[in-house]
Amino acid sequence: MFVTEAYGQETAPAAESGYGAEGGAAPADAAYAGTEVPGEGGGAAFPPFDTSTFPSQILWLAITFGIFYIFLKKVIVPRLGAILDVRETRIAQDIEQATKMKADADAAVAAYEQELAEARGNANTIGQQARDNAKAEAETKRKSIEADLEQKLADAEARVAKIKEAAMQDVGSIAEETASAIVSALGGNSAKGDVSAAVKSVRS
């Protein structure tokens, strides 16, 4: 302000005439052209230092910038702020949700793993049990069959012994008959008692 005011006062009369003449078209150029070399003799007005235009510029700047400031303050800034806020909260929410979902998924995976481990453990015990049971059953079955077989073997042995006995008995009588037949064939007359006694002595 200081510099411009001083300069402006110095050049005020010339500036005023120049400014006034600017309204027209062709003559204005001619009148204005004297300012081509500003500062030469101080008679010419350099437009930015032309104080006669200051009131107009100040007033119109105040009006336009004032309206602009109020418009931005009342409409644009709240609106842009709201847009950015909404986006920020939306992103924060989404991230939160994603984090929650991830935690859920992790928990589900952990639960699944746990269940799987449990199931595996169960399966093992069940298998073991089944195996043990089957083994025990087989053992008892085997034992009973063995016992059965032993019994049968013993029975069979007894029967064989009996049959053998019977057979031996038969062998005695056959031998007596054969012997008496042989004796009679030889012309002897053998007593039945003698023959059997002889057979008995041979056999024993």
Partner: peptide, 17 residues
């Protein structure tokens, strides 16, 4: 008493805003 004419400067202030 102040010359507060609407000038080309004012016009471009309005255009800017």
């Amino acid at each position: 008493g102040f010359d507060v004419s609407f000038t080309n400067s004012s016009l471009f202030m309005v255009v800017t805003v």
